[in-house]
Write a protein that binds this DNA or RNA. Sequence first.
DNA 1: CATGAATGAGTGTTCATTCAT
DNA 2: TATGAATGAACACTCATTCAT
Lengths: 193, 193, 193, 193
Amino acid sequence: MSETSAVTGATHRQIIDAAVRLIAERGFSATSVDEIAETAGVAKGSVYYNFGSKADLFAQILTEGITRLTASLRAALAAAGDRPPLAALAGELLRQVHDNPAFAKVVAAEVFRTGRDWQDSIRLIHDEAMAVFAQAVADSDPTLDPQDAEIAGSAVFGATLVAGLEWLAFHPDRTVDQVLTTVLRALTPDVRR
Amino acid sequence: MSETSAVTGATHRQIIDAAVRLIAERGFSATSVDEIAETAGVAKGSVYYNFGSKADLFAQILTEGITRLTASLRAALAAAGDRPPLAALAGELLRQVHDNPAFAKVVAAEVFRTGRDWQDSIRLIHDEAMAVFAQAVADSDPTLDPQDAEIAGSAVFGATLVAGLEWLAFHPDRTVDQVLTTVLRALTPDVRR
Amino acid sequence: MSETSAVTGATHRQIIDAAVRLIAERGFSATSVDEIAETAGVAKGSVYYNFGSKADLFAQILTEGITRLTASLRAALAAAGDRPPLAALAGELLRQVHDNPAFAKVVAAEVFRTGRDWQDSIRLIHDEAMAVFAQAVADSDPTLDPQDAEIAGSAVFGATLVAGLEWLAFHPDRTVDQVLTTVLRALTPDVRR
Amino acid sequence: MSETSAVTGATHRQIIDAAVRLIAERGFSATSVDEIAETAGVAKGSVYYNFGSKADLFAQILTEGITRLTASLRAALAAAGDRPPLAALAGELLRQVHDNPAFAKVVAAEVFRTGRDWQDSIRLIHDEAMAVFAQAVADSDPTLDPQDAEIAGSAVFGATLVAGLEWLAFHPDRTVDQVLTTVLRALTPDVRR
DNA sequence: CATGAATGAGTGTTCATTCAT
DNA sequence: TATGAATGAACACTCATTCAT
């Protein structure tokens, strides 16, 4: 039915790619496993053979994506040199949103859901990614209360994520650098320092 | 099943309140009309009698909520006096998030969805609310490109919304003023000016 | 799709009748809810609206059937007069098997299943029906150990049930009385006394 | 996945043993080939390599089991000496139920199923085993109508089987001899003679 | 206005079966 | 001989929607 997969693990990846794309557009609940399978070009049974359940598939996507995201954020931080850390983080997040807008939308849509289900995966996303921003804020102003640092970190994160999605959805002609400049301009001098 | 409603429109309101609460927790697709009816304490048929369909119910909730939100944002702007406009907007948005966290979550979860369905309602939210922020940014820096003003506006909006949700979910002991101060601190002096 | 049901509760009864008939033929697992609904002449959703789940439907059938069966066995016992109690029981069981062979097969097929699921209902069948036979055995020979009375009771029960099913499946021309005579002949004088 | 089988046919036997055990507990339809393979410690493909299909596996189990059972019943009959034939049969059946309760349950559960599928195998069981009992009844009372002999034979068979299962499920402390005595007591003097 | 029994298309999941290795 | 990844038809169950009352 599908062209024979040349690479081992191809089925696995096809399914993940299809799922991310569809969930980004319609949300988790509104995306059916049928659609995922069809988009991936595999049989529905293959989704279950490879992931066990729809929820597990989503959890795996979330975990994998967030691991990659935090890793790239930390790498950007390490390579920041004398650029302000938060600027480096915002730039990298913007680049990630640009490169993988589907995953960015999934994060934006699900990260503040408080229902149960894959809550653990969501919690993980939140803690992992937010912590990087909070830490950068705390580093740049050691006098800040830790709770405030987390809130400030989430503000920078939210500003960048929402602006990034606005960019892609409504002003896709802008370049990464233009958007980054605009976002940084909206942020405090502490961020720009 | 429920005591007869003395007030006309009581059923209507019970249904909306129940729907907002449930949709905030589970999302639109994952919330069933059965649950809405049960939570509202009315028969399922009443939901259809009053709203026609599940999608219409959601659209009405969105429209009503966004109307209230933009009205309060504009009012805050008008009453800002010599306080910086964006600070007034952020403060008001924070207050709205605090007073109606369920609706705030719905907005956060659905606002960047690009699928069809109730897209029109969503578009409306986006345009209405974002425009207020973009306008305030444009006013505070007339030299700014309009596209950049929209992106910057969405950055301020995103910073405030995400920080507000972070606040409610993980640091609910903080007061509105503390959170506002922290968010403003993360934003540029242009915002604070 | 089906003729309008004249009687309240008609849907309920149609479903039960269809389910008993099909389960008797194919067994519980091999009978689909689709088939039950189609046979009953109702929509699949109606099965769930009325019974909640396939397992609950089965449990309800079992409970209802066993209640009717034990009631008729006890009635036969009370009306036995000076006929030997076990003969009266065997006769009544034979009559029930004849009148409702579908339910008899279900009992025969499922009563010694030890898996979980609707085990409680099965246990109930066993205890209720077997107890009537065990009690009759115990009454007819007070010196018998209670455990032996239960085993003997199950022997009489098994003899009658299996002979009854054999009768219906392979020698349907025989009359109830002929079969009862033959069964009693195979049983001890204590039974016949 | 499992250690390589040293003995030829080991896989074959492991699968049969696993299948009998599982089918006895859950029934045929509720037992999956996956479970059978896992319990047997072989790959799923091996079940198909060795048996062709799930139905064929079941038919083979039934055929093999019934062949063994009837052989042992006939042997017991031949070795009965001057003990009453039906007593010898009941004793042997009881011993078989005790030694292989899983298979006994399968027989009890499936023997009166009238659906199609493996009906032929079932028919075979019925005819083979029942015939031994019917013949013994006929021999002990040559005046009996052949149809009545079959019914009486099934009565003795049913009494013994059900009592045997009752024994194993609820009074496992009883010995074979105790149970046999109790069953024989419930049966006619013709049986005991 | 309000109800809730009934519906049937659609959902997540299972599973007997196939086949390239 | 044996494997296990892949399949797709079939399954139990859900749910938005309708309608007679």
